[in-house]
Design a protein around this nucleic acid. Structure first.
Lengths: 222, 222
DNA sequence: GGATTACTTTGTACACTGTACGATTACATA
DNA sequence: TATGTAATCGTACAGTGTACAAAGTAATCC
């Protein structure tokens, strides 16, 4: 029961805890992220974590910050369209990789300094590009909504495609089901035969939105 | 311990269970929806529910179906732009009222017949409007993403505004915080002085997207 | 060196979750 | 009234977050 001498196991730190938490959530989902599991992963008892973190909520906040910190952040003077495009593409990629982060955002956990800096930078870029404040809010809201929504759809579609754990009953269910929904069936078929990609889908909508914003930027504020 | 004779309490049905579950989630959130709480709400023991429902998952699925069923569903021949606008506005309103439903969507629970019928109707309307299949997919994905994303933002923003349970430390925190994020501060200020509304914000983006789709509809498929 | 002090880590315990299983009750039909 | 069936309840169990106190470890001073 004595600690193994050859494994001097680094002391626990908040950084190591958050890192491990993100890994667990990436691999097995937010549901698998329990304090005991996290302790095991780190080589400590669950309760040891509480000396570095007030409660689980604080871990979730930290995880979200870690994720947001990976998103490409626009510079103030940069061309707004290019900057917004890059950050949207980057945000979608990051949130796709850590899809549990959307749920955290929903839970109102997004008040950390990284998130604030990220949002502030976006607004700063748009303002320096000459958007009036009203349109800055519009552009910000629109682009962010699109990114979040797109990721949600990717997640739920991935679930649908992978089947509901029982692979056997799939084909029957699929058959019965799709007869009643011809348009859905047609779209699935189209997607399969035209190698549909989430990337392409996302960029189509993104460019459409950016086009629209550009048009509004030229016009007088309604 | 004998059951009260003056309360003939109707027998449990799946409909009544789902109805009660939605009410609990609306009032106190998904987290408050436990089997025991649900039983209390219905006037039964928690275990009585399991005679009408396989497990909690089935309840969640049913709840999502109940919510999606409230969304205004477009008719096949209707003007696509009007139909899409109405259903988007309707969907946002419904999901705002039952904000927990977004989380369920994320969990891959959206395979019920109501959901399938809803999606099928949307696709049908777009196809009958002359969109080629590729653009049908684009329009569908784009609009849905926007609705979901917008609702997520409304939820998380509502959390931020209401403060984190401690109203006292708010002003200090806010002050310290906002000095480092001038653009964020400017936007908050703008929102407060120009009576910002989620409704207006949503409709701006929605019309921008619809404009963009209309433009694409006229052009040849890229 | 040894003692004191501060900080980590751990063990145990509690209230809560979903739900398996068996006992009990209520009700329709004979 | 007696019987069969469906609905309901009580109890129990494993797993959750975490409060609290005991134990361990590291750093500092004599």
């Amino acid at each position: 029961m004595t600690p193994k001498a050859n494994t001097p196991r680094q002391p626990l730190t908040k950084e190591r805890i958050l890192q491990a938490a993100v890994e667990v959530a990436d691999q097995d989902g937010l549901g698998a992220l329990t304090m005991r599991r996290l302790g095991t992963e780190l080589g400590f008892e669950a309760m040891a974590i509480y000396k570095h973190v007030a409660n689980k909520e604080e871990i979730l906040e930290g995880m979200l910050e870690l994720v947001v910190g990976q998103i490409e952040i626009p510079e103030e003077g940069a061309d707004w369209r290019d900057a917004m495009r890059r950050r949207a593409v980057s945000a979608r990629k990051v949130f796709s990789r850590h899809s549990w982060a959307i749920a955290l955002q929903e839970a109102g956990t997004a008040t950390g300094s990284t998130t604030l800096r990220y949002r502030n930078a976006i607004l700063g870029n748009l303002r320096s590009a000459g958007f009036p404040m009203e349109y800055v809010a519009h552009a910000f809201s629109l682009l962010d909504s699109y990114v979040y929504g797109q990721v949600i759809q990717e997640i739920s579609l991935s679930f649908d495609t992978s089947g509901e754990t029982t692979g056997g009953a799939r084909s029957t269910l699929e058959q019965t089901t799709m007869d009643d929904y011809p348009h859905l069936a047609a779209m699935y078929e189209h997607a399969l035969t035209h190698d549909y990609s989430f990337d392409g889908e996302f960029e189509f909508g993104l460019d459409l939105i950016l086009d629209g914003l550009e048009r509004h930027r030229a016009k007088p504020p309604s």
